[in-house]
Amino acid sequence: MDTSLLLSQFLSGLSRGMVLFLIASGLSLIFGVMNILNFAHASLWLVGAYFCYSFWVLLQGYGFGMWVSIGLAALTLAAIGWVIEVVLIRRVYDRELPEQLLLTYAMVLIIGDLIKLTWGVEDRIIARPPLVEGPVFFFGIPFDSYFIFVILVGFAVAIGLWWFLQKTKYGHIVRAAVFSREMVSALGIPIPRIYTGVFVLGIFIAGLAGGVQAPVGSITLGMDMAIVVQAFCVVVIGGFGSLLGTLVGSIIVGEIYAFSILFWPQGALVLIFVVTAVVLIIRPWGLFGTPMRA
């Protein structure tokens, strides 16, 4: 077991973690602010990947087609997120937890079938532009150059979200809403509009994640099912509503996966759930969360 192999495994874990981060950050944001656990988050992520594919087919003649498609997919998903929030989520703000969970779970089933109706059952593959087609070499070890892009997008979104939450007025309102909705509302800020904004932002990032995921490999029906539970694990490990926690949690889960593939292939997914269960038992609010809302 030499260091170069470990390094390449580390980088692949990091890129896997970054995809998870892009999904989980929206999930965590929506739960932190709206207190709604969105089961359908990864389903919308997959819709983003399929939209990216469709845009790419339309723009196939252009060299920049794939990059534009990723952005268009994110924007399309933001629009879809807005419709879902206004039509469905808004109606269950003050319902009990199980009903909210069921609503988003029902969305998983509906979205899954709508994908099947729209894009059919065959796998979709995006041919990458030359820039990210081949491998790059780190100390003589080949590494998928597209993964570098994935890692960069992940960190860019992390920094962007951090800047939004810490430095802008709306970010401050969102953070305040995590602590006390009543107080924010009492200051005359329309809570439903904040909720809609947060939901749209979360789904936008999910769409971006889908777009970024699309060229990684083939886009397959049912990809969302395994990912959504792993995204829950990330959010649990990091702590609900904590951006830093989500980032650390994603890297932990990504690396656990990458390294157990190396040492104990059958145990990769089992190990993720063991770690999640241990964190939930010892620190239910996660590594970086606050016990306030536990």
């Binding site: 694990c233 759930f273 536990a294």
Partner: peptide, 26 residues
């Protein structure tokens, strides 16, 4: 049973998936 609410739901979900992957991989 040490947890309640959303944490109970997620821990049961995590254990359920754990069982699933054990059966799946064994």
């Amino acid at each position: 049973v040490r947890l309640t609410g959303i944490y109970f739901a997620i821990l049961t979900l995590a254990f359920g998936q754990l069982m699933y992957y054990i059966i799946f991989q064994w």
